[in-house]
């Protein structure tokens, strides 16, 4: 039988016979388009448990596949390939190879929590996306995403001083991700401001560099948080069976 919706099937899964006769009927060419049979044997039985063990992934087992998350998703509206319902399906079945096709976009979840709002099963798909992105990195399937770089830079400063100073976060983030700080649009923004209020902005920028905002008597909190971070990092690595740190 000819397949009408070929666009829905990946090219490599379609077979077309140049010359084929079935029961005396010539079905050569596109009349003999078939979907290749496939049997999956390489299920990753541990994938769901590993992702569920990472922060945010706890409720993945509750999913009923209703699709409310994808329907509500901010990123899906921009990129239809971004499909939380489908990824949760793959993870629950252990279809790792299929999941890895999308490994480079899963980190793009913007944490708007529209999925969490819509989910009738309290899966917290936003958390599952974060746990999955985290899992991909811990397993070495993807490098650290720009988002992870930003989170680590930001959190590092908070843990160190109790507060953040935005221009420092931005500068360090661009350095970590090896991007030029002089993005044309950033330059346009800063020029606009500096042109309007040169003295005010120069003073404030200077102040921020000299007088770094910090919480007083933070040393004990810093130590306590760092100890906890080491503990969870070790637990996360153990949960996914990964060795060593980043």
């Amino acid at each position: 039988m000819p397949i009408h919706e070929k666009s829905l099937i990946r090219k490599e899964n379609l077979v077309e016979n140049e010359s084929l006769v079935i029961d005396g009927v010539d079905v050569s060419g596109h009349w003999s388009t078939f979907i290749t049979g496939r049997s999956l044997t390489d299920y990753n039985d541990d994938m769901q448990d590993e992702i569920a063990a990472l922060p945010g992934g706890e409720n993945i087992h509750r999913c009923w596949q209703c699709g409310s998350c994808t329907n509500a998703c901010t990123v899906n509206a921009v990129n239809p390939e971004f499909n939380p319902r489908y990824w949760i399906y793959l993870i629950r079945l252990g279809m790792e190879e299929e999941l890895l096709r999308d490994k480079d976009i899963i980190w793009q979840c913007v944490s708007c929590n529209k999925c969490t709002y819509a989910c009738p099963r309290d899966v917290v798909p936003e958390g599952v996306m974060k746990a999955t992105a985290h899992w991909l990195e811990l397993k070495g399937h993807t490098p650290k995403s720009p988002s992870t770089e930003f989170d680590e830079e930001f959190s590092g400063q908070v843990i160190k001083t109790g507060k953040i100073e935005e221009s420092r976060v931005i500068m360090n983030f661009f350095r970590r991700t090896e991007q030029p700080l002089a993005q044309p649009w950033l330059v346009a923004l800063i020029k606009g401001l500096a042109f309007r209020f040169p003295v005010f902005y120069l003073m404030r920028m200077g102040m921020a560099v000299v007088r770094r905002p910090r919480t007083r008597n933070w040393a004990k909190s810093r130590r306590a948080i760092n100890e906890y971070v080491q503990e969870v990092e070790a637990a996360n690595r153990a949960a996914v069976g990964a060795k060593g740190g980043h």
Binding site: P55, S147, T148, D151, F154, V158, K163, T215, V232
Partner: peptide
């Protein structure tokens, strides 16, 4: 006061 954790710290660990 100190930073509340914004949108970034929870991705290191929500309990921080």
């Amino acid at each position: 006061w100190n930073c509340c954790g914004a949108m970034e710290v929870k991705n290191v660990d929500p309990k921080i």
